[in-house]
């Protein structure tokens, strides 16, 4: 409202469920249309994008930083920056890599900040991190899983098989933590988040050949590390 004498009319209309729900469901639309609407300031469209991508951004940040609270901070900072930057996004079809680029950069900045405060060192490009980036990290993830399992959310299957599968996933998560941050991001984006090599090259701003090399070396490290489980 611009002044005390002015009366606002239907200020919330764009985001009012009664208005939009009566016309169409966003789930029926293509993502390009939803991104365009979010660029145009449609809160409903932005909320749809948030619902669709918040989990993926969180999981990337969690595997990069190995810290639940810091991963939540990355999600919050990434989406607030994305909403502000959306009107300037020239290629709406590149929204998802653009979003993950912002998140990946924020993770790198967070890790660089850790390196300046060496209580929690994390290798960036070359040297593997012995035993993972944080000593307590495996415990943190295990605790999260135990909380979920205690609520009855676990997958129901043979306990011995389930234990072995869980142990293998924990071992892989531990190995991933020991990979330097740059290659780790490339591997996560390819093998976990399933971006193409071209998209990853755009996300991390590196030549595609470098990205391919980093991912191949990371796969080799991880495959060798998983040998005892075969």
């Amino acid at each position: 409202m611009q002044g005390a004498s002015r009366t606002a009319l239907a200020t919330e209309a764009p985001g009012h469920p009664a208005v939009l729900a009566s016309a169409e469901a966003l789930d029926d639309l293509d993502e390009l249309t939803i991104v365009a609407r979010a660029q145009n300031g449609d809160v409903h469209a932005f909320e749809w994008l948030l619902s669709t991508h918040e989990g993926g951004v969180f999981r990337l940040a969690f595997r990069m930083l190995d810290d639940y609270a810091e991963a939540e901070d990355i999600v919050q900072e990434t989406f607030i920056a994305a909403r502000r930057g959306l009107p300037d996004l020239a290629a709406p079809q590149a929204f998802t890599p653009w979003l993950y680029r912002a998140a990946t950069n924020k993770c790198f900045n967070n890790l660089r900040s850790r390196r300046r405060h060496p209580a929690a060192p994390d290798s960036f490009d070359d040297e593997p991190v012995p035993g993972g980036s944080h000593g307590a990290s495996a415990v943190g993830e295990a605790e999260l899983r135990n909380q979920w399992d205690a609520r009855g959310g676990g997958i129901c299957q043979d306990p011995a098989l389930r234990y072995e599968a869980e142990a293998q996933m924990q071992a892989l998560a531990c190995l991933v933590r020991a990979v330097p941050a740059g290659p780790r991001a490339c591997w996560l984006l390819r093998d976990v988040h399933e971006f193409s090599y071209t998209e990853i090259a755009a996300i991390v701003r590196l030549p595609e050949s470098t990205v391919r090399g980093r991912i191949a070396r990371t796969r080799r490290i991880l495959a060798e590390g998983m040998e005892p489980w075969r």
Partner: peptide
Amino acid sequence: PRGTIDISEQALTGLIRF
């Protein structure tokens, strides 16, 4: 007599999309 009635640009674009 009590002032100007206005609509936010976002509300108007929302109505147009609708």
